[in-house]
Amino acid sequence: MKNTFNILATIILVLSLSATVCAEGWDVPASVKKKQNPYELTKRNISSGKKIFQTTCKSCHGDPGKGNMLPLQPPPTDLGSQNFLVQTDGEIFHKIRTGKGAMPTFEKTLSDESKWMVIAYLRSLDKMKREAVVTKAVVNPEVTDVKIDIDVDSEHKKLIAELTGLKKDGKRVGLEGIELSFLVKRAFGQLDISGEEAYTNEKGQLIVQFPTDLPGDREGQANLLVKITDEDNYGPIEEKRVVSIAVPTNPKNILSERAMWGTRANAPIWIIATYVLGVIGIWGVIFLILFQLFQLSKMRVKSK
């Protein structure tokens, strides 16, 4: 009897202790709790949130809803589960920011904007709030041999990309609702000119305005690369093209002009002239004096 009582007491003690630990869990201030995600659940915000999630969160939490998190103790939360998503935006934000235990703080490693993007991505998985996402579910037919064709409208500086795939019956159809990236090659990277909402329309087409003031080479050429942004869709598909709609630029060689900072031959003419005249003048005076002295000594010889 005493034994049973002891065991019971221990169990109750342990339970109550663990309960308090859990309750202590996250101390989210009420003001933070009320915070709403200032960024809308647009496709772009969600996809940028997904990118951040995959580089910073996935290593521990795994894919949302898949339950493939790291086997830690306590286990990392499945961030796609409804148990997690019942929280307010502010609560999730606070947890990302402060961290606790094995969960590191992202206060400094992620900007506030990035944190909200991640929340936007998680929220897009939320079954309760899904209608908030401004996307339309598009089902493309199953296709093979997916490719991108690029057409250039030189007059209006517009780029028209067409994303098509081969259906099973041999028909080529446009693929709708796929995000494309338009990248222009620069010295150290690719400049993204796709703009917001770069998704193909129902014909599989996407029209992008090429920046009217973007410099190209002497002939106005630039290397363009169009690719599917998310490789999960159809794998790495891209198309390269040299377009001649950039602004022709003739790089100025700064050494072709004379300047104060120019070394030697590049110095301004007045400096070179002043210097040379100065040297000639001073040496001239010295030689003149020496010459006169020489003449003087000659005169003395004569007078003897």
């Binding site: 620069r186 010295a187 150290f188 990277g189 690719q190 400049l191 993204d192 920046p211 003031d213 973007l214 410099p215 630029t249 790089p251």
Partner: peptide, 20 residues
């Protein structure tokens, strides 16, 4: 960010993002 002014583009060394 580092880049070429003639190309009007600079690239971030950490993220690799290129901007005007």
């Amino acid at each position: 960010y580092f880049g070429d002014r003639n190309e009007d583009a600079v690239t971030n060394g950490t993220t690799g993002v290129t901007v005007r």
